[in-house]
Write a protein that binds this DNA or RNA. Structure first.
Length: 568
RNA sequence: GCCCCCUUAGCUCAGUAGGAUAGAGCACAGGUUUCCUAAACCUGGUGUCGCAGGUUCGAUCCCUGCAGGGGGCGCCA
Protein backbone atom coordinates (compact mmCIF):
# COMPACT_ATOMS: atom_id res chain seq x y z
CA UNK A 1 0.00 0.00 0.00
CA UNK A 2 2.67 2.44 1.05
CA UNK A 3 4.81 1.89 -2.00
CA UNK A 4 2.07 2.61 -4.51
CA UNK A 5 1.11 5.85 -2.81
CA UNK A 6 4.68 7.02 -2.40
CA UNK A 7 5.35 6.23 -6.04
CA UNK A 8 2.53 8.48 -7.23
CA UNK A 9 3.64 11.33 -4.99
CA UNK A 10 7.19 10.92 -6.19
CA UNK A 11 6.16 11.16 -9.81
CA UNK A 12 4.17 14.29 -9.10
CA UNK A 13 7.15 15.84 -7.34
CA UNK A 14 9.50 14.87 -10.12
CA UNK A 15 7.46 16.71 -12.69
CA UNK A 16 7.34 19.78 -10.46
CA UNK A 17 11.00 19.61 -9.59
CA UNK A 18 12.24 21.66 -12.53
CA UNK A 19 9.60 24.31 -12.14
CA UNK A 20 10.46 24.58 -8.47
CA UNK A 21 14.17 24.59 -9.15
CA UNK A 22 14.89 21.94 -6.57
CA UNK A 23 18.19 20.09 -6.64
CA UNK A 24 16.94 16.98 -5.00
CA UNK A 25 13.63 15.69 -3.76
CA UNK A 26 12.98 15.11 -0.07
CA UNK A 27 12.10 11.72 1.34
CA UNK A 28 8.42 11.10 1.08
CA UNK A 29 6.79 9.99 4.28
CA UNK A 30 3.35 8.55 4.50
CA UNK A 31 1.29 8.37 7.63
CA UNK A 32 -2.04 7.03 8.64
CA UNK A 33 -4.19 9.92 9.87
CA UNK A 34 -5.28 9.71 13.46
CA UNK A 35 -8.86 10.23 12.53
CA UNK A 36 -10.27 7.87 9.94
CA UNK A 37 -12.56 10.61 8.69
CA UNK A 38 -9.57 12.51 7.41
CA UNK A 39 -8.61 9.83 4.96
CA UNK A 40 -6.78 6.55 4.61
CA UNK A 41 -3.27 7.84 4.14
CA UNK A 42 -1.74 11.28 4.32
CA UNK A 43 1.51 13.03 3.61
CA UNK A 44 3.07 16.09 5.19
CA UNK A 45 5.37 16.60 2.25
CA UNK A 46 3.96 20.03 1.36
CA UNK A 47 4.65 21.34 4.84
CA UNK A 48 8.11 19.87 4.70
CA UNK A 49 8.85 21.78 1.52
CA UNK A 50 7.93 25.21 2.85
CA UNK A 51 11.47 26.00 3.91
CA UNK A 52 13.20 25.17 0.66
CA UNK A 53 10.47 26.67 -1.54
CA UNK A 54 9.73 29.62 0.72
CA UNK A 55 6.04 29.45 0.03
CA UNK A 56 3.04 28.62 2.18
CA UNK A 57 2.37 24.89 2.57
CA UNK A 58 -1.17 25.09 1.23
CA UNK A 59 -0.01 26.54 -2.09
CA UNK A 60 2.56 23.80 -2.47
CA UNK A 61 -0.01 21.18 -1.59
CA UNK A 62 -2.32 22.56 -4.25
CA UNK A 63 0.32 22.19 -6.92
CA UNK A 64 1.07 18.63 -5.91
CA UNK A 65 -2.58 17.72 -5.82
CA UNK A 66 -3.12 19.24 -9.28
CA UNK A 67 -0.30 17.12 -10.63
CA UNK A 68 -1.72 13.97 -9.10
CA UNK A 69 -5.19 14.71 -10.36
CA UNK A 70 -3.84 15.59 -13.77
CA UNK A 71 -2.22 12.24 -14.34
CA UNK A 72 0.03 9.64 -12.80
CA UNK A 73 -2.80 7.17 -12.59
CA UNK A 74 -3.74 8.63 -9.24
CA UNK A 75 -7.27 7.99 -10.33
CA UNK A 76 -6.60 4.29 -10.34
CA UNK A 77 -5.99 4.02 -6.67
CA UNK A 78 -7.39 7.19 -5.11
CA UNK A 79 -11.03 7.83 -4.51
CA UNK A 80 -10.17 11.35 -3.49
CA UNK A 81 -7.19 13.59 -2.85
CA UNK A 82 -7.72 16.54 -0.56
CA UNK A 83 -5.83 19.26 1.20
CA UNK A 84 -6.65 19.76 4.84
CA UNK A 85 -5.46 21.62 7.88
CA UNK A 86 -2.19 23.49 7.51
CA UNK A 87 -1.19 21.56 4.38
CA UNK A 88 -1.82 17.88 4.79
CA UNK A 89 -2.62 15.97 1.63
CA UNK A 90 -5.17 13.31 2.46
CA UNK A 91 -5.82 10.36 0.22
CA UNK A 92 -8.79 8.13 0.26
CA UNK A 93 -8.19 4.79 -1.38
CA UNK A 94 -10.52 3.17 -3.86
CA UNK A 95 -12.22 0.00 -2.78
CA UNK A 96 -10.77 -1.73 -5.83
CA UNK A 97 -7.30 -0.88 -4.61
CA UNK A 98 -8.06 -2.23 -1.17
CA UNK A 99 -9.48 -5.41 -2.61
CA UNK A 100 -6.42 -5.85 -4.78
CA UNK A 101 -4.22 -5.42 -1.75
CA UNK A 102 -6.22 -8.01 0.11
CA UNK A 103 -5.94 -10.39 -2.80
CA UNK A 104 -2.20 -10.00 -2.84
CA UNK A 105 -2.06 -10.69 0.88
CA UNK A 106 -4.12 -13.85 0.45
CA UNK A 107 -1.93 -15.13 -2.36
CA UNK A 108 1.51 -14.16 -1.12
CA UNK A 109 0.69 -14.54 2.56
CA UNK A 110 3.54 -13.88 4.95
CA UNK A 111 6.06 -12.85 2.33
CA UNK A 112 3.93 -9.82 1.45
CA UNK A 113 4.13 -8.64 5.03
CA UNK A 114 7.89 -8.50 5.25
CA UNK A 115 10.44 -6.26 3.67
CA UNK A 116 14.01 -6.56 2.59
CA UNK A 117 15.47 -3.74 4.59
CA UNK A 118 18.54 -5.62 5.69
CA UNK A 119 19.70 -6.86 2.32
CA UNK A 120 21.53 -9.64 4.08
CA UNK A 121 23.57 -7.38 6.36
CA UNK A 122 24.87 -9.17 9.41
CA UNK A 123 23.50 -8.07 12.75
CA UNK A 124 24.65 -9.34 16.09
CA UNK A 125 22.29 -9.11 19.00
CA UNK A 126 23.62 -9.82 22.44
CA UNK A 127 21.05 -10.18 25.16
CA UNK A 128 20.23 -11.65 28.56
CA UNK A 129 23.93 -12.35 29.31
CA UNK A 130 23.04 -12.96 32.95
CA UNK A 131 25.80 -13.84 35.36
CA UNK A 132 25.85 -17.62 35.74
CA UNK A 133 25.68 -17.29 39.49
CA UNK A 134 22.03 -18.05 39.93
CA UNK A 135 18.74 -18.59 38.16
CA UNK A 136 17.26 -16.04 35.77
CA UNK A 137 14.83 -13.62 37.34
CA UNK A 138 11.91 -11.85 35.71
CA UNK A 139 14.02 -8.91 34.60
CA UNK A 140 16.18 -11.25 32.53
CA UNK A 141 12.98 -12.66 31.13
CA UNK A 142 11.97 -9.27 29.85
CA UNK A 143 15.33 -8.86 28.17
CA UNK A 144 14.95 -12.31 26.66
CA UNK A 145 11.48 -11.54 25.32
CA UNK A 146 12.50 -8.21 23.82
CA UNK A 147 15.73 -9.57 22.35
CA UNK A 148 14.05 -12.57 20.88
CA UNK A 149 11.25 -10.52 19.34
CA UNK A 150 13.69 -8.02 17.96
CA UNK A 151 15.70 -10.80 16.36
CA UNK A 152 12.58 -12.26 14.80
CA UNK A 153 11.73 -8.85 13.40
CA UNK A 154 15.22 -8.16 12.07
CA UNK A 155 15.31 -11.55 10.43
CA UNK A 156 11.95 -10.97 8.78
CA UNK A 157 13.30 -7.61 7.65
CA UNK A 158 16.06 -9.33 5.72
CA UNK A 159 18.96 -9.11 8.13
CA UNK A 160 21.18 -12.02 8.93
CA UNK A 161 20.88 -12.17 12.69
CA UNK A 162 22.95 -13.89 15.31
CA UNK A 163 21.65 -14.22 18.84
CA UNK A 164 24.33 -14.39 21.42
CA UNK A 165 24.63 -14.84 25.17
CA UNK A 166 27.81 -13.58 26.82
CA UNK A 167 28.90 -15.62 29.81
CA UNK A 168 30.68 -13.75 32.58
CA UNK A 169 32.53 -16.80 33.81
CA UNK A 170 35.89 -15.23 34.55
CA UNK A 171 35.35 -12.78 37.34
CA UNK A 172 34.97 -12.47 41.04
CA UNK A 173 31.31 -13.31 40.99
CA UNK A 174 31.90 -16.81 39.73
CA UNK A 175 34.67 -17.23 42.28
CA UNK A 176 32.29 -16.16 45.00
CA UNK A 177 29.74 -18.61 43.71
CA UNK A 178 32.29 -21.40 44.09
CA UNK A 179 33.12 -20.30 47.61
CA UNK A 180 29.45 -20.21 48.53
CA UNK A 181 28.92 -23.72 47.26
CA UNK A 182 32.06 -24.94 48.99
CA UNK A 183 30.86 -23.53 52.30
CA UNK A 184 27.48 -25.22 51.91
CA UNK A 185 29.22 -28.44 50.90
CA UNK A 186 31.20 -28.43 54.11
CA UNK A 187 28.20 -27.48 56.21
CA UNK A 188 26.03 -30.18 54.70
CA UNK A 189 28.77 -32.68 55.37
CA UNK A 190 28.64 -31.78 59.03
CA UNK A 191 31.47 -29.27 59.25
CA UNK A 192 31.24 -25.88 60.85
CA UNK A 193 32.33 -23.78 57.90
CA UNK A 194 32.02 -19.99 57.65
CA UNK A 195 29.90 -18.68 54.82
CA UNK A 196 31.48 -15.98 52.63
CA UNK A 197 30.33 -12.51 53.63
CA UNK A 198 28.76 -11.55 50.30
CA UNK A 199 28.12 -15.11 49.27
CA UNK A 200 25.12 -16.32 47.32
CA UNK A 201 22.46 -17.42 49.75
CA UNK A 202 19.77 -18.87 47.54
CA UNK A 203 18.50 -22.40 47.96
CA UNK A 204 20.00 -23.32 44.62
CA UNK A 205 23.45 -23.16 46.22
CA UNK A 206 22.47 -26.11 48.39
CA UNK A 207 21.20 -27.95 45.36
CA UNK A 208 24.59 -27.60 43.74
CA UNK A 209 26.35 -28.68 46.93
CA UNK A 210 24.09 -31.69 47.18
CA UNK A 211 24.92 -32.58 43.61
CA UNK A 212 28.62 -32.41 44.39
CA UNK A 213 28.22 -34.58 47.47
CA UNK A 214 26.46 -37.13 45.32
CA UNK A 215 29.17 -37.04 42.68
CA UNK A 216 32.31 -36.63 44.74
CA UNK A 217 31.32 -37.55 48.28
CA UNK A 218 33.91 -36.43 50.81
CA UNK A 219 36.71 -35.93 48.32
CA UNK A 220 37.00 -32.21 49.05
CA UNK A 221 36.32 -32.20 52.76
CA UNK A 222 39.95 -31.89 53.78
CA UNK A 223 40.94 -29.45 51.11
CA UNK A 224 41.19 -25.69 51.25
CA UNK A 225 39.26 -23.28 49.08
CA UNK A 226 42.54 -22.44 47.33
CA UNK A 227 42.91 -26.06 46.36
CA UNK A 228 39.46 -26.75 45.08
CA UNK A 229 37.92 -23.33 44.47
CA UNK A 230 38.24 -23.67 40.71
CA UNK A 231 36.49 -26.99 40.76
CA UNK A 232 33.58 -25.63 42.79
CA UNK A 233 33.29 -22.48 40.69
CA UNK A 234 33.39 -24.43 37.48
CA UNK A 235 30.97 -27.05 38.59
CA UNK A 236 28.54 -24.51 40.01
CA UNK A 237 28.47 -22.06 37.14
CA UNK A 238 28.15 -24.80 34.57
CA UNK A 239 25.21 -26.17 36.43
CA UNK A 240 23.70 -22.69 36.66
CA UNK A 241 24.29 -22.16 32.97
CA UNK A 242 22.53 -25.39 32.15
CA UNK A 243 19.56 -24.18 34.17
CA UNK A 244 19.63 -20.82 32.45
CA UNK A 245 19.71 -22.43 29.04
CA UNK A 246 16.84 -24.72 29.92
CA UNK A 247 14.73 -21.91 31.34
CA UNK A 248 15.30 -19.86 28.21
CA UNK A 249 14.45 -22.78 26.00
CA UNK A 250 11.22 -23.32 27.87
CA UNK A 251 10.58 -19.63 27.47
CA UNK A 252 10.99 -20.10 23.72
CA UNK A 253 14.33 -18.33 23.43
CA UNK A 254 17.20 -20.20 21.84
CA UNK A 255 20.60 -18.62 21.30
CA UNK A 256 22.82 -19.23 18.30
CA UNK A 257 25.97 -18.80 20.26
CA UNK A 258 27.25 -18.66 23.82
CA UNK A 259 30.47 -16.74 24.22
CA UNK A 260 32.53 -17.40 27.31
CA UNK A 261 34.57 -14.59 28.81
CA UNK A 262 37.06 -17.11 30.11
CA UNK A 263 37.53 -18.44 26.63
CA UNK A 264 38.47 -14.97 25.42
CA UNK A 265 41.27 -14.91 27.98
CA UNK A 266 42.39 -18.43 27.15
CA UNK A 267 42.80 -17.77 23.49
CA UNK A 268 44.61 -14.50 24.13
CA UNK A 269 41.93 -12.21 22.77
CA UNK A 270 42.16 -9.82 25.68
CA UNK A 271 45.86 -9.37 25.22
CA UNK A 272 45.63 -8.98 21.48
CA UNK A 273 42.72 -6.55 21.69
CA UNK A 274 44.72 -4.35 24.05
CA UNK A 275 47.71 -4.68 21.78
CA UNK A 276 45.56 -3.47 18.92
CA UNK A 277 44.52 -0.44 20.94
CA UNK A 278 48.13 0.12 21.86
CA UNK A 279 49.07 0.17 18.20
CA UNK A 280 46.48 2.85 17.63
CA UNK A 281 48.14 4.71 20.52
CA UNK A 282 44.91 4.70 22.44
CA UNK A 283 46.46 3.37 25.66
CA UNK A 284 48.64 5.08 28.21
CA UNK A 285 50.20 4.42 31.61
CA UNK A 286 49.29 6.42 34.67
CA UNK A 287 49.56 5.72 38.39
CA UNK A 288 50.88 2.27 37.65
CA UNK A 289 47.78 1.33 35.67
CA UNK A 290 47.02 1.17 31.97
CA UNK A 291 44.23 3.34 30.59
CA UNK A 292 42.16 3.46 27.43
CA UNK A 293 41.61 6.95 26.03
CA UNK A 294 37.86 6.63 25.70
CA UNK A 295 37.50 10.41 26.06
CA UNK A 296 38.69 10.66 22.49
CA UNK A 297 35.37 9.13 21.46
CA UNK A 298 33.16 11.16 23.73
CA UNK A 299 33.35 9.29 27.02
CA UNK A 300 33.61 11.59 30.01
CA UNK A 301 36.69 9.96 31.47
CA UNK A 302 39.36 7.51 30.43
CA UNK A 303 38.98 3.94 31.64
CA UNK A 304 41.40 1.58 33.30
CA UNK A 305 42.06 -1.67 31.47
CA UNK A 306 44.94 -3.05 33.52
CA UNK A 307 44.94 -2.36 37.23
CA UNK A 308 47.92 -1.42 39.41
CA UNK A 309 48.19 -5.01 40.52
CA UNK A 310 48.56 -6.16 36.93
CA UNK A 311 45.09 -7.71 36.71
CA UNK A 312 42.76 -6.93 33.85
CA UNK A 313 39.57 -5.05 34.59
CA UNK A 314 36.20 -6.37 33.53
CA UNK A 315 36.26 -3.69 30.88
CA UNK A 316 39.37 -5.25 29.33
CA UNK A 317 37.57 -8.44 28.47
CA UNK A 318 34.66 -6.40 27.18
CA UNK A 319 37.02 -4.67 24.81
CA UNK A 320 38.16 -8.05 23.59
CA UNK A 321 34.61 -9.27 23.28
CA UNK A 322 33.42 -6.34 21.22
CA UNK A 323 36.46 -6.43 19.01
CA UNK A 324 35.73 -10.09 18.49
CA UNK A 325 32.20 -9.25 17.36
CA UNK A 326 33.61 -6.93 14.72
CA UNK A 327 36.23 -9.47 13.69
CA UNK A 328 33.45 -11.91 13.04
CA UNK A 329 32.13 -9.60 10.36
CA UNK A 330 29.03 -8.02 11.86
CA UNK A 331 28.19 -4.61 10.57
CA UNK A 332 25.58 -3.78 13.16
CA UNK A 333 25.94 -4.49 16.86
CA UNK A 334 22.93 -4.43 19.13
CA UNK A 335 23.32 -4.87 22.88
CA UNK A 336 20.36 -5.35 25.14
CA UNK A 337 21.18 -4.42 28.69
CA UNK A 338 19.48 -3.79 31.97
CA UNK A 339 18.85 -0.08 32.40
CA UNK A 340 21.31 -0.01 35.29
CA UNK A 341 24.12 -0.49 32.77
CA UNK A 342 23.41 2.68 30.86
CA UNK A 343 26.56 4.29 32.21
CA UNK A 344 28.47 1.69 30.29
CA UNK A 345 27.31 2.81 26.88
CA UNK A 346 29.89 5.54 26.18
CA UNK A 347 32.89 3.36 26.89
CA UNK A 348 31.68 0.45 24.77
CA UNK A 349 30.77 2.87 22.03
CA UNK A 350 34.29 4.22 22.29
CA UNK A 351 35.73 0.75 21.89
CA UNK A 352 33.68 0.00 18.82
CA UNK A 353 34.52 3.34 17.25
CA UNK A 354 38.16 2.81 18.02
CA UNK A 355 37.98 -0.41 16.05
CA UNK A 356 36.24 1.31 13.17
CA UNK A 357 32.52 0.78 13.60
CA UNK A 358 30.49 3.84 12.60
CA UNK A 359 28.62 5.02 15.67
CA UNK A 360 25.17 4.67 14.15
CA UNK A 361 25.85 0.95 13.71
CA UNK A 362 25.89 0.38 17.44
CA UNK A 363 22.63 0.35 19.32
CA UNK A 364 21.88 -0.29 22.93
CA UNK A 365 18.42 -1.16 24.07
CA UNK A 366 17.91 -0.65 27.76
CA UNK A 367 15.47 -2.84 29.59
CA UNK A 368 13.72 -1.23 32.51
CA UNK A 369 12.72 -3.02 35.65
CA UNK A 370 9.74 -5.29 35.96
CA UNK A 371 7.66 -4.53 39.02
CA UNK A 372 6.11 -7.81 39.99
CA UNK A 373 2.71 -7.62 41.61
CA UNK A 374 0.22 -10.04 43.01
CA UNK A 375 -3.32 -8.75 43.39
CA UNK A 376 -1.92 -5.27 43.02
CA UNK A 377 0.54 -5.75 45.88
CA UNK A 378 4.25 -5.59 45.14
CA UNK A 379 6.14 -8.86 45.42
CA UNK A 380 9.33 -8.25 47.35
CA UNK A 381 12.50 -9.12 45.55
CA UNK A 382 15.93 -9.14 47.04
CA UNK A 383 18.67 -11.10 45.40
CA UNK A 384 20.99 -10.54 48.35
CA UNK A 385 18.81 -12.45 50.70
CA UNK A 386 18.26 -15.09 48.09
CA UNK A 387 14.59 -14.29 47.81
CA UNK A 388 13.61 -13.32 44.32
CA UNK A 389 11.08 -14.41 41.82
CA UNK A 390 12.66 -16.43 39.11
CA UNK A 391 11.67 -16.53 35.48
CA UNK A 392 11.07 -20.23 35.97
CA UNK A 393 8.46 -19.59 38.65
CA UNK A 394 6.63 -17.10 36.44
CA UNK A 395 6.71 -19.38 33.41
CA UNK A 396 5.40 -22.26 35.47
CA UNK A 397 2.65 -20.21 37.04
CA UNK A 398 1.62 -17.95 34.19
CA UNK A 399 2.94 -19.56 31.02
CA UNK A 400 5.51 -18.42 28.44
CA UNK A 401 3.13 -16.98 25.88
CA UNK A 402 1.40 -14.68 28.31
CA UNK A 403 4.62 -13.67 29.99
CA UNK A 404 6.33 -12.84 26.71
CA UNK A 405 3.38 -10.91 25.38
CA UNK A 406 3.04 -8.81 28.52
CA UNK A 407 6.77 -8.09 28.51
CA UNK A 408 6.23 -6.73 25.01
CA UNK A 409 3.28 -4.49 25.78
CA UNK A 410 5.49 -1.59 26.79
CA UNK A 411 8.50 0.13 25.36
CA UNK A 412 11.59 -1.62 26.64
CA UNK A 413 12.85 1.46 28.47
CA UNK A 414 9.74 2.16 30.46
CA UNK A 415 8.93 0.44 33.70
CA UNK A 416 6.52 -2.44 33.52
CA UNK A 417 4.01 -3.61 36.04
CA UNK A 418 3.39 -7.31 35.86
CA UNK A 419 0.55 -8.57 37.99
CA UNK A 420 0.78 -12.34 38.20
CA UNK A 421 -2.84 -12.77 39.17
CA UNK A 422 -4.15 -10.55 36.39
CA UNK A 423 -1.92 -12.33 33.89
CA UNK A 424 -3.46 -15.65 34.86
CA UNK A 425 -6.99 -14.39 34.73
CA UNK A 426 -7.72 -15.17 31.10
CA UNK A 427 -10.16 -12.31 30.86
CA UNK A 428 -10.47 -9.26 28.70
CA UNK A 429 -8.00 -7.60 31.03
CA UNK A 430 -5.45 -9.90 29.59
CA UNK A 431 -4.37 -8.66 26.17
CA UNK A 432 -2.75 -11.92 25.15
CA UNK A 433 -6.00 -13.80 25.23
CA UNK A 434 -7.73 -11.02 23.43
CA UNK A 435 -5.38 -11.36 20.46
CA UNK A 436 -5.04 -15.13 20.55
CA UNK A 437 -8.77 -15.48 20.86
CA UNK A 438 -9.32 -13.55 17.64
CA UNK A 439 -7.13 -16.10 15.90
CA UNK A 440 -8.83 -19.04 17.56
CA UNK A 441 -12.23 -17.62 16.80
CA UNK A 442 -11.42 -17.45 13.11
CA UNK A 443 -10.16 -21.02 13.22
CA UNK A 444 -13.48 -21.94 14.72
CA UNK A 445 -15.31 -20.21 11.91
CA UNK A 446 -13.32 -22.26 9.43
CA UNK A 447 -14.18 -25.46 11.21
CA UNK A 448 -17.78 -24.42 10.97
CA UNK A 449 -17.40 -23.62 7.28
CA UNK A 450 -15.84 -27.01 6.67
CA UNK A 451 -18.72 -28.67 8.44
CA UNK A 452 -21.23 -26.81 6.35
CA UNK A 453 -19.26 -27.64 3.24
CA UNK A 454 -18.91 -24.08 2.02
CA UNK A 455 -17.44 -24.24 -1.46
CA UNK A 456 -13.70 -23.73 -1.45
CA UNK A 457 -13.49 -24.05 2.31
CA UNK A 458 -13.96 -27.75 2.76
CA UNK A 459 -10.48 -28.30 4.13
CA UNK A 460 -10.27 -28.93 7.81
CA UNK A 461 -6.73 -27.67 8.13
CA UNK A 462 -6.46 -23.92 8.45
CA UNK A 463 -3.77 -23.64 5.82
CA UNK A 464 -6.09 -25.31 3.31
CA UNK A 465 -8.92 -22.93 3.89
CA UNK A 466 -9.79 -21.04 0.78
CA UNK A 467 -7.18 -22.98 -1.12
CA UNK A 468 -9.43 -24.13 -3.89
CA UNK A 469 -10.83 -20.67 -4.29
CA UNK A 470 -8.17 -18.59 -5.91
CA UNK A 471 -9.27 -18.43 -9.56
CA UNK A 472 -12.21 -16.11 -8.96
CA UNK A 473 -10.78 -14.42 -5.91
CA UNK A 474 -10.96 -10.85 -7.12
CA UNK A 475 -14.62 -10.87 -8.08
CA UNK A 476 -15.41 -12.43 -4.72
CA UNK A 477 -13.45 -9.93 -2.70
CA UNK A 478 -15.30 -7.10 -4.42
CA UNK A 479 -18.29 -8.09 -2.31
CA UNK A 480 -16.58 -6.78 0.80
CA UNK A 481 -18.14 -3.35 0.99
CA UNK A 482 -19.32 -2.92 4.57
CA UNK A 483 -17.56 -0.13 6.46
CA UNK A 484 -16.19 -2.58 9.00
CA UNK A 485 -14.84 -4.73 6.19
CA UNK A 486 -13.11 -1.88 4.43
CA UNK A 487 -11.63 -0.64 7.71
CA UNK A 488 -10.39 -4.09 8.47
CA UNK A 489 -8.73 -4.38 5.07
CA UNK A 490 -7.05 -1.01 5.52
CA UNK A 491 -5.79 -2.11 8.90
CA UNK A 492 -4.38 -5.28 7.38
CA UNK A 493 -2.62 -3.34 4.66
CA UNK A 494 -1.06 -1.11 7.30
CA UNK A 495 0.80 -4.00 8.85
CA UNK A 496 3.92 -3.64 6.67
CA UNK A 497 4.27 -0.01 7.75
CA UNK A 498 4.02 -0.96 11.40
CA UNK A 499 6.50 -3.76 10.87
CA UNK A 500 8.96 -1.48 9.12
CA UNK A 501 8.70 1.04 11.94
CA UNK A 502 9.30 -1.65 14.53
CA UNK A 503 12.38 -2.89 12.69
CA UNK A 504 13.77 0.58 12.07
CA UNK A 505 13.36 1.76 15.63
CA UNK A 506 14.05 -1.63 17.25
CA UNK A 507 10.71 -1.45 19.04
CA UNK A 508 8.83 -4.74 19.09
CA UNK A 509 6.04 -3.24 21.20
CA UNK A 510 4.66 -1.48 18.15
CA UNK A 511 3.60 -4.84 16.81
CA UNK A 512 1.99 -5.74 20.11
CA UNK A 513 -0.13 -2.61 19.97
CA UNK A 514 -1.06 -3.17 16.38
CA UNK A 515 -2.20 -6.72 17.11
CA UNK A 516 -4.45 -5.55 19.91
CA UNK A 517 -6.06 -3.02 17.61
CA UNK A 518 -6.51 -5.51 14.80
CA UNK A 519 -7.99 -8.09 17.16
CA UNK A 520 -10.36 -5.46 18.51
CA UNK A 521 -11.54 -4.57 15.03
CA UNK A 522 -12.07 -8.19 14.20
CA UNK A 523 -14.09 -8.95 17.33
CA UNK A 524 -16.20 -5.95 16.63
CA UNK A 525 -16.77 -7.02 13.02
CA UNK A 526 -17.60 -10.53 14.11
CA UNK A 527 -20.30 -9.29 16.40
CA UNK A 528 -21.89 -7.10 13.80
CA UNK A 529 -21.75 -9.27 10.69
CA UNK A 530 -22.21 -12.96 10.23
CA UNK A 531 -19.45 -14.57 8.26
CA UNK A 532 -21.27 -17.74 7.32
CA UNK A 533 -24.67 -17.12 5.80
CA UNK A 534 -26.96 -18.43 3.06
CA UNK A 535 -25.32 -16.11 0.58
CA UNK A 536 -22.55 -18.33 -0.67
CA UNK A 537 -20.55 -15.71 -2.54
CA UNK A 538 -20.61 -13.30 0.38
CA UNK A 539 -19.72 -16.11 2.75
CA UNK A 540 -16.71 -16.90 0.61
CA UNK A 541 -15.64 -13.29 0.54
CA UNK A 542 -15.90 -12.97 4.31
CA UNK A 543 -14.07 -16.21 4.88
CA UNK A 544 -11.29 -14.82 2.73
CA UNK A 545 -11.18 -11.68 4.85
CA UNK A 546 -11.02 -13.83 7.98
CA UNK A 547 -8.20 -15.78 6.44
CA UNK A 548 -6.31 -12.56 5.80
CA UNK A 549 -6.83 -11.40 9.37
CA UNK A 550 -5.54 -14.73 10.53
CA UNK A 551 -2.44 -14.48 8.38
CA UNK A 552 -1.56 -11.10 9.81
CA UNK A 553 -2.33 -12.12 13.39
CA UNK A 554 -0.12 -15.14 13.01
CA UNK A 555 2.65 -13.11 11.43
CA UNK A 556 2.60 -10.54 14.21
CA UNK A 557 2.39 -13.08 17.00
CA UNK A 558 5.26 -15.05 15.53
CA UNK A 559 7.36 -11.88 15.55
CA UNK A 560 6.69 -11.64 19.27
CA UNK A 561 7.46 -15.30 19.74
CA UNK A 562 3.91 -15.99 20.87
CA UNK A 563 1.86 -18.90 19.64
CA UNK A 564 -1.40 -18.65 17.71
CA UNK A 565 -3.62 -21.46 18.96
CA UNK A 566 -6.48 -22.72 16.81
CA UNK A 567 -8.57 -23.58 19.82
CA UNK A 568 -8.77 -22.05 23.24
C1' G B 1 28.40 16.90 43.12
C1' C B 2 28.27 15.19 37.86
C1' C B 3 25.61 12.26 34.01
C1' C B 4 21.29 9.53 31.92
C1' C B 5 16.02 8.31 31.79
C1' C B 6 11.02 9.36 33.20
C1' U B 7 6.58 12.95 34.28
C1' U B 8 0.26 12.32 28.97
C1' A B 9 -7.35 10.73 31.54
C1' G B 10 -8.87 8.04 38.32
C1' C B 11 -4.98 3.69 37.21
C1' U B 12 -1.44 1.31 33.54
C1' C B 13 0.47 3.11 29.24
C1' A B 14 0.62 4.44 23.44
C1' G B 15 1.49 8.70 20.63
C1' U B 16 4.46 6.07 14.31
C1' A B 17 12.02 10.05 13.82
C1' G B 18 7.82 18.64 14.84
C1' G B 19 1.90 18.36 12.30
C1' A B 20 -4.76 18.19 11.98
C1' U B 21 -10.03 17.95 17.21
C1' A B 22 -3.73 14.17 21.93
C1' G B 23 -5.43 8.05 21.84
C1' A B 24 -6.09 2.73 23.94
C1' G B 25 -6.89 -0.70 27.82
C1' C B 26 -8.47 -1.05 32.78
C1' A B 27 -11.65 0.93 36.38
C1' C B 28 -16.87 3.09 36.69
C1' A B 29 -22.32 3.03 34.71
C1' G B 30 -25.88 0.94 31.49
C1' G B 31 -27.09 -2.43 27.57
C1' U B 32 -26.46 -6.85 23.91
C1' U B 33 -26.74 -13.86 23.43
C1' U B 34 -33.23 -18.29 19.30
C1' C B 35 -27.14 -16.71 15.68
C1' C B 36 -19.99 -18.87 13.26
C1' U B 37 -16.64 -19.46 20.92
C1' A B 38 -20.06 -13.83 25.87
C1' A B 39 -12.32 -15.30 26.84
C1' A B 40 -16.75 -11.13 22.74
C1' C B 41 -19.56 -6.64 21.38
C1' C B 42 -22.21 -1.74 21.87
C1' U B 43 -23.17 3.13 24.42
C1' G B 44 -21.56 6.72 27.94
C1' G B 45 -16.43 11.21 29.56
C1' U B 46 -12.51 12.76 31.66
C1' G B 47 -6.97 15.98 29.99
C1' U B 48 -3.37 23.52 32.21
C1' C B 49 0.50 16.51 27.80
C1' G B 50 4.98 18.26 35.42
C1' C B 51 6.02 24.08 35.45
C1' A B 52 8.20 28.46 32.86
C1' G B 53 10.56 30.44 28.76
C1' G B 54 12.68 29.78 23.65
C1' U B 55 13.22 27.94 18.29
C1' U B 56 9.19 27.23 14.29
C1' C B 57 4.05 28.61 9.75
C1' G B 58 3.09 24.83 13.69
C1' A B 59 5.83 21.79 19.90
C1' U B 60 3.36 16.23 23.97
C1' C B 61 7.82 15.69 20.65
C1' C B 62 13.53 19.95 19.68
C1' C B 63 16.58 23.74 23.10
C1' U B 64 17.26 26.19 28.14
C1' G B 65 15.93 26.63 33.21
C1' C B 66 13.01 24.76 37.44
C1' A B 67 10.22 20.98 40.33
C1' G B 68 9.18 15.78 41.42
C1' G B 69 10.39 10.30 40.61
C1' G B 70 14.00 6.47 39.14
C1' G B 71 18.90 4.96 37.78
C1' G B 72 24.18 5.45 37.18
C1' C B 73 28.93 7.19 39.02
C1' G B 74 34.77 2.77 41.76
C1' C B 75 41.82 0.37 39.35
C1' C B 76 33.64 -3.93 41.56
C1' A B 77 31.27 -7.38 38.26
Amino acid sequence: MKQEVVEIIRKALESLQEKWGLECLPDIDIEVPKNEKMGDVATTIAMGLTKSLKRPPKKIAEEIVDEIRGGFKGGDIFESVEIAGPGFINFRLKNEFLHAGLEQLLIEEHSSLRADMGKGHKVQVEFVSANPTGPLHVGHGRGAAVGNALCNIMEAAGFEVQKEFYINDAGLQVKLLGESVFARYLQMSGYDAPFPEDGYKGDYIETVAEEIIKRAGDEYLNKTIEECGDFFSDYAYKMMLADIERDLKDFGVVFDRWQSEKELYERGSVQSALAALHEKTLLYEKDGARWFISTRFGDDKDRVVVKQDGEYTYFASDIAYHKDKLDRGFDTIINIWGADHHGYIPRIKSVLEAFGLPKEKFRVILIQMVALLRHGEPVQMSKRAGEFVTLREVIDEVGSDITKFIFLTRRADSQLEFDIEVAKEQSAENPVFYVQYAFARISSIFRQAAEKRVRGFEGSRVQDVGAGFKPDLSSTLALLTENEELSLIKKLLQYPMVFEGAALSCEPHRITYYLQELAGMFHSYYNKHRVISDNEELTNARLCLCRAVQIVLKEGLSMLGVSAPERM
